[in-house]
Design a protein around this nucleic acid. Structure first.
Length: 597
RNA sequence: UGCCCGAUGGUGUAAUGGUAGCACAAGCGACUCUGACUCGCUUUGUCUAGGUUCGAGUCCUAGUCGGGCAGCCA
């Protein structure tokens, strides 16, 4: 199966939502499709959000449409600008070079304009053309004035009322899923009284929780969301975007469908838990008798990944209790964590394409994500030599000051691979795993009296094993067969094993962080005490030896340390002369897994 | 004994009444100056019971199992 990548547009994915969109377009129900990605700025974006971003922006780019970024910021007590900025950056990163031309923004500071169509009042705020200067994301809070007006219209139609029940009473009156609710005693107030009270709510005449605005629907509905749901609550709290203008704030169900409508959204795609809200979404829009085409809501299953948690609450807990190094800790499933870890945005898009879109709420094996990362990095990463746990090897037939510059391939997957020079010297370091005094069966690497090829250099033979007083191997004394040098007369000579190495005298030092899965169990979120499953080896830090060219690495580079894994320069903790490399992901290792007895 | 949604190999999915296919994972093998990549092969599947039909994973009915919904959260 081929999958979309950054450069080409590959075969378009197919799923039930794309089918609906295709049909709507074929039926000329809409002339242009407009989707939206509506995060609440109360946490960082994670891989679960990425699935939604890929779906919504994918829909837009595949149909020459647009996808608006909108902050669903109707709850001032939970939201912060820090999150707005982080989310904006994460979205930009994820869609860069792929769907950024579909990103729907509005003019900075703009709010919906009141207009009249067919004699009916309307509010509309379409996105600006891509590339327009001074554009910013949409904010539900920019719609507050329009939303207030729509609420007044609802009251005038007798479809909303001010209710004086306390939160606790409201709860009791609502009933239970299997028991009908009771009507509020305030349900049949006159329009004028409702209008007056609602205006007073806005003016700040009442304390928090004293009154609310409710839709007048059906207290006996089997769907509890239709039992006169709240539209507005009183909250004497300043808002991170709207300032201190408001003390009443709309609730999700009311704000969302209308924000969709105001922006001209055609397909409002959300996750499964909102399925039972859809009748309310439709009710509000229908009740207002709006002049323009209405948006429709469709639901899909959110992403669940094994060995991963996505719960905002728990992620926040990890951050606050310093179990991880912030929201962008490379082990976090956040987009900022993934970015810092060196995972390309295209790998995340690849994952989204691989998991597909359905209404089945399953758990995707994190191995699929790891596969997507390796697939992407394999074509992207420059090959380099690095030794994580060094063992000294002295090539006794080389002069102490001899430096042989060997050619090493940078990009074996490229059509026309390039090379670089790597210094090869009398003393080299090899991976301690690559020597075994007592080799297990089928061991291809170096052993006493055995031969192995040092990649890009030549074949060496282990003549002598040097140990310290405790019996630990400290050094290998080997001879190099320079006639087998790459490009040399006997370069074709085959040995079973080829290992990586660096020059002991020319290598540079670096801190290397060996990241691994954050949790040791497949479903860490299954119990409340998920913290006991944190992998103690999820961030092992070592000092490693790298080939000299790595001293010039930049944070944009992606490397494969040959035979080890993919690495990037940590963008946060690296400094000139003090490089810190992150292991994005290891190479597949069938030897370590099962080949090894 | 409420309402809504879902169920295809270990996992994620395709098949839109007509040969159950793909990817990941797992296993075996080939290749290899990366035990990587690549390539080949293999194991494993339509929740159950009825019904409609020439023909059902697909449509219908009932059941089972799983998920969601009773925030002035989103």
């Amino acid at each position: 199966m081929s999958v979309e990548n950054t450069a080409s547009s590959g075969p378009a994915p197919s799923d039930f939502i794309r089918d609906i969109v295709a049909k709507d377009l074929a039926d000329k129900r809409y002339q242009k499709i407009v989707t939206r990605f509506p995060p609440e700025p109360n946490g960082y974006l994670h891989l679960g959000h990425a699935k939604s971003i890929c779906l919504n922006f994918g829909l837009a780019r595949e149909n020459q449409g647009q996808c608006n970024l909108r902050f669903d910021d109707t709850n001032p007590t939970k939201e912060e600008v820090e999150y707005v900025d982080a989310i904006t950056a994460d979205v930009d990163w994820l869609i860069a070079g792929w769907a950024d031309h579909c990103l729907g923004l509005k003019p900075k500071g703009a709010v919906p304009r009141k207009q009249s169509q067919d004699g009916r009042d309307d509010y509309h705020l379409p996105a600006v053309p891509p590339g327009t200067a001074d554009a910013e994301p949409f904010f539900a809070s920019d719609n507050f004035e329009a939303l207030y007006d729509f609420a007044v219209a609802l009251i005038r139609k007798g479809k909303a009322y001010v209710c004086d029940l306390s939160p606790k009473e409201t709860d009791e009156y609502r009933g239970a899923p299997d028991k009908p609710g009771r009507e509020s005693p305030w349900r049949n107030r006159s329009v004028d009284e409702n209008l007056d009270l609602f205006q007073q709510m806005r003016a700040g005449e009442f304390p928090d929780g004293a009154r609310s605005l409710r839709a007048r629907i059906d207290m006996a509905s089997p769907n509890v969301w239709l039992r006169d749901p709240l539209l507005y609550r009183i909250r004497h709290t300043a808002h991170h975007h709207a300032g201190d203008k408001w003390c009443i704030y709309p609730l999700y169900d009311y704000a969302h469908c209308l924000s969709d409508y105001i922006e001209g959204i055609t397909h409002s795609v959300c996750t499964l838990e909102f399925e039972v809200h859809r009748p309310l979404y439709d009710w509000i829009l229908a009740a207002l008798e709006l002049p323009r085409p209405l948006p429709h809501q469709y639901e899909f299953a959110k992403l669940n990944l094994s060995y991963t948690i996505f719960s905002k609450r728990r992620l926040l807990q990890l951050v606050q209790e310093k179990l991880v190094d912030g929201w962008d800790d490379p082990r976090m499933p956040t987009l900022s964590g993934a970015r810092r870890r060196g995972i390309p945005a295209a790998a995340i898009r690849r994952l989204a394409a691989l998991v597909g879109v359905t209404k089945y709420d399953g758990v995707t094996d994190v191995a699929l994500f790891e596969h997507a990362i390796r697939e992407e990095l394999n074509g992207l990463a420059q090959r380099r030599l690095a030794v994580l746990r060094p063992l000294k090897v002295v090539l006794t037939n080389l002069a102490p000051d001899e430096i042989i510059e060997v050619d090493a391939t940078n990009d074996p997957q490229a059509e026309h691979p390039t090379t670089r020079r790597v210094p090869f010297t009398r003393e080299v370091l090899i991976e301690s795993d690559d020597f075994a005094e007592v080799p297990p069966p089928k061991y291809f690497r170096l052993k006493p009296g055995g031969e192995v090829r040092l990649k890009y250099a030549c074949i060496i033979r282990c003549e002598e094993v040097v140990k310290d007083a405790s019996g630990t191997v400290t050094e290998l004394r080997c001879t190099a067969d320079l006639s087998t040098r790459s490009g040399g007369p006997n370069s074709d000579r085959k040995v079973k094993g080829t290992i990586h190495w660096v020059s002991a005298t020319r290598a540079i030092d670096a801190e290397v962080r060996l990241y691994d899965r954050l949790f040791t169990v497949a479903e860490p979120g299954a119990t409340e005490d998920f913290k006991q499953f944190i992998n103690p080896h999820s961030a092992d830090v070592i000092r490693a030896k790298l080939e000299p060219s790595l001293g010039a690495a930049t944070t944009e580079d992606r490397f494969q340390f040959e035979r080890i894994g993919y690495f990037n320069l940590d963008p946060k903790d690296s400094s000139a002369g003090r490089p810190v490399f992150n292991r994005t992901i290891s190479l597949k290792d069938t030897w370590a897994k099962g080949g090894k007895p």
